[in-house]
Simulated assay, not measured.
Amino acid sequence: MTDLIPPPRTPESASAPGATPPSAAHPGGTVPDGTTPAGGARAPRGRDAYFDNVKFFLIMLVVLGHFWEVFRNDSHAANAVYTFVYGFHMPVFVFVSGYFSRGFMRSPEKFRGIFPTLVVPYVIFNVLYRLQLVFINGNDFRLHELFRPQFLMWFLVALVLWRLSAPLWTHLRHPVAVAMALSLIAGSWSFNSDSTLCRAAGLLPFFVLGLTIRRDRVEALRGPGWTRWAGTAVLVAALPIAYVWQLGSVLPKVERGVLLWNRGYEHMGFNAVEGMAYRLAALGIAVVLGMAFLAAVPRGRAWYTKLGTRTMYVYLMHGLVVKTLDYGGFFNGHFFQTPLGLVSVTAGALALGLLLATVPVQRLTHWAVEPKGRWLLKPSHGGT
């Protein structure tokens, strides 16, 4: 499969005669059919259009966010939408990843999928991102930096760490509370000099929440029609608030490290108490906006639903385009400092996200995004 987040399942396909189970999912990692969510019944087979829609809109926000990041210092409008998007989109991504990683809590066999579906693509693309720095940005080549997470590759490393920890959370009485405590405390630990570990610790509560939440609580967000309107209203109202917030004239200006989850309290100039307060606020904002987003996403199949099954391709490859344009000075022209330039970049980012989710791109780049890495594993006990 081609998902950045494992595939959902739908009741309709479970009852269909001769229904075939979906194949292994990216990333990462495989999620066999019959996964039993914590506190719920056995998951039915097939794909759920709602979650494919969720993944489509999330990956488009990821692409837009990385393009808007280039302009955030030059435009209050760009900084506002950037602040708004980064307030919830990665926490929701992590939550959905946890929601479809429940098989890792019970089946040791699941861990076999981590290496071929997460580690091998990480090596391939991280080398590509590092080589961009050398050949386009003019950085010196340093062998010891070759496999250090570059740009968006942190997520694959964090996902490996989160999934390896999955069995632990089944034994705790209050797993989300423990994960929140670890997230708050970890902001003051010395490993925060590494942005990947900092993000893995900071965003851990969202993964654990997705891993352990009852299915009926998620279903409630996609229930009555009023929830969709309520979610949309919350998101619309959050935009002007983000605009005022990032100005720093009424509320304290948003510290970028709080939004990105990539810096410890000391590195942001906070003491432990201040840092915990900001991180707790970020957790709360992400939960509110995340719930609003999940409620606002359309439920049924649409033209973009199938594109939501190829999020791995969009995620890994769009960054190569963003960094090529950025390192090459493409955005330095005066045109891109104007409102029309920003609108043009936004339209181009959307077009890029759609293009990278198409079947032709999948066929051309399958060797790198979904490499045949199973040969690296010993045969399983079942002989497969």
Rank of each mutant, 00 (worst) to 15 (best):
L156G: 06
A158G: 07
L159A: 11
L161W: 09
L161Q: 03
R163N: 14
L164N: 11
L164A: 15
L164Q: 11
A166K: 08
W169H: 09
W169Y: 11
W169S: 03
H171N: 10
L172P: 04
R173N: 11
H174N: 15
V178D: 04
A179W: 03
A179C: 13
A179M: 07
A179L: 07
A181G: 14
L182F: 13
L184D: 02
L184M: 08
I185Q: 09
A186Y: 06
A186T: 06
W189S: 08
S190W: 11
S190M: 05
D194C: 13
T196G: 07
T196F: 07
C198T: 15
R199Q: 12
A200P: 03
A200L: 06
A201K: 09
A201D: 04
G202L: 05
G202N: 11
P205Y: 00
F207K: 00
V208R: 01
L209Y: 08
G210Q: 01
L211G: 02
I213H: 02
I213P: 00
R214G: 09
R215H: 11
V218I: 13
E219S: 14
E219L: 14
E219R: 15
A220L: 08
L221M: 15
L221S: 07
L221F: 14
G223A: 12
P224W: 12
T227I: 10
A230Q: 07
A233H: 10
V234T: 06
V236F: 04
A237F: 08
A237V: 13
A238H: 03
P240K: 09
I241Y: 14
Y243G: 04
W245K: 09
L247F: 08
S249I: 12
P252T: 00
K253V: 15
V254N: 00
V254W: 04
G257M: 02
G257I: 05
W261I: 03
W261H: 10
N262A: 13
N262R: 07
E266L: 14
E266N: 14
M268K: 03
